[in-house]
């Protein structure tokens, strides 16, 4: 699950887990396994933030072709 999970999904799941744990009414086994999952998610989310690098791409528009052809700046 870790690899496919987006940051947002991870954080949402983490929030849900915190909520569920805080609501209580679980068996100790359930609470422990949620706790472990939550800690794991917190780690993954932190790591995602640390490891991320902004990706930049550029669409090809008519304008972009025009300035490439002319080789001049628009403003």
């Amino acid at each position: 699950m870790d690899e496919q999970l987006s940051f947002e999904e991870g954080l949402n799941r983490l929030e849900k887990i915190v909520q569920t744990l805080e609501t209580g009414g679980l068996t100790l086994e359930e609470a422990l396994s949620l706790f472990e999952e939550g800690m794991h998610l917190a780690k993954i989310c932190s790591e995602r933030l640390d490891a991320a690098e902004l990706k930049i791409s550029q669409l090809q528009t008519a304008f972009e072709e025009a300035i490439e052809n002319k080789g001049e700046s628009p403003c």
Partner: peptide, 28 residues
């Protein structure tokens, strides 16, 4: 930084700017 920026280039002033902006939105 968990984001991809997609630049949709357009002139932003002068003749053709408004048309460029419209096209940039269409491309997006």
């Amino acid at each position: 930084p968990l984001v991809e920026l997609v630049l949709s280039p357009t002139p932003v002033q002068g003749d053709g700017a408004s048309e460029g902006i419209v096209q940039a939105f269409e491309a997006l």
